[in-house]
Computed example of a mutant assay.
Amino acid sequence: MRVTVLGGGGVWPEAGRACGGFLVEYDGFRLLVDPGFAVVPELLRWVGPGEVDAVFVTHGHPDHCADLNPLLRARALSGKPDVPLPVYAPAGAVDAVLALDRVGMLAFELCELRDRFAVGPFALETRLLPHSVTNAGVRLEAGGRVLAYTGDCGPDPEVVALARGVDLFLAEATFVDQVPAGASGVLSSARLAGRQCADAAAGRLVLTHLHPGTDPAASRAVAGEEYGGPVEVATELIGNGPIDL
């Protein structure tokens, strides 16, 4: 399994830093996970718009799905290909993005999320995790390798269950340490991500969804106080090439 970090910021894209987005590949199949703000320009460094085989969206906030529109536009207006792109998302999550263009212009197929299902060579397991809108954390397995991704979520035992024993844990860490009262229960921190990664005995931690202006070194250090394995920050991995699991 190969993972390319396309973005790792949260809320809005900073200069040179797209919001959350990951290209996951196995056996020639390309799954784009969370095409957030400014993800498509990063994606096009690696593959053409017609080379994406499916899209998975954790939830409907635009920093996780807004660039589904330019991806579908690029496919439609370049004519490569004209087959519908399968889009897996919670019910209603991408309706606003898909409504940005006239009916019939964009070729896509909305697919139902289930607890367990297959997309190409990937076996997917989803769990609803606490956020201000419906958010589906996902566990992806192919070729004996496994990754888990939280989307955005507050603390919940289901996060540890989702990440149990994975090779790579992509964990939302909007804040460095304490989560402000207004976001308590719906967002996370680097410290909590490190603690959950340790509890899950995951092999590698990548912190994502950092709030704009956050010092990546501070997030990495705090997560490392809780988790003794390798800790990286998604915003520092953009453009560095794929991670081979």
Score class of each variant (00 low, 15 high):
L162A: 06
P121W: 08
G60P: 10
D152Q: 13
H59E: 14
P230G: 12
L68I: 03
R45C: 09
G143V: 09
V97I: 15
G92Y: 10
E158T: 11
G213E: 11
A99L: 05
V146I: 13
E112G: 09
R75Q: 02
L32M: 03
F22W: 13
R139E: 05
T134H: 04
S219F: 00
S188V: 06
A181H: 14
V206Q: 03
G21E: 04
L72V: 00
L129V: 13
L170N: 03
F117I: 04
A38M: 12
E14M: 08
D34A: 14
Y227I: 04
D177C: 07
F22R: 11
L168M: 06
V57T: 04
G213R: 10
L128T: 11
Y149A: 15
G194A: 09
E109G: 15
E125D: 10
D177W: 07
L6S: 04
N135K: 06
P41V: 12
T214G: 11
A74Q: 13
D167R: 07
E51P: 02
L72C: 00
N135I: 05
T174K: 11
F108G: 02
D82M: 11
E226L: 13
A171M: 13
V39R: 02
N69P: 00
A200C: 07
E109K: 14
V47H: 03
P86I: 10
A18W: 08
L128I: 10
V160Q: 01
D67C: 04
W12T: 11
D101E: 13
G21H: 02
V179F: 11
A234V: 07
D156C: 15
R30V: 05
S189H: 08
V231W: 00
R2C: 00
K80V: 12
S189I: 02
L187C: 12
Y26T: 09
R114W: 05
D199L: 15
G144F: 08
W46G: 01
Y88S: 01
P180W: 12
L23M: 09
E172P: 05
A107I: 02
E125G: 13
A38Q: 15
L71W: 06
V33K: 02
G10M: 04
L85N: 05
A218G: 01
F122I: 06
A76H: 00
F29A: 01
A76V: 01
G144M: 10
H61Y: 08
G20E: 14
P62E: 12
S184I: 07
A91I: 08
R127Q: 13
F108P: 04
R45I: 00
V186M: 06
T214Y: 05
E225Q: 15
G104C: 00
L6A: 09
G165P: 03
V11F: 15
G224F: 06
V55T: 01
G143K: 01
V97D: 03
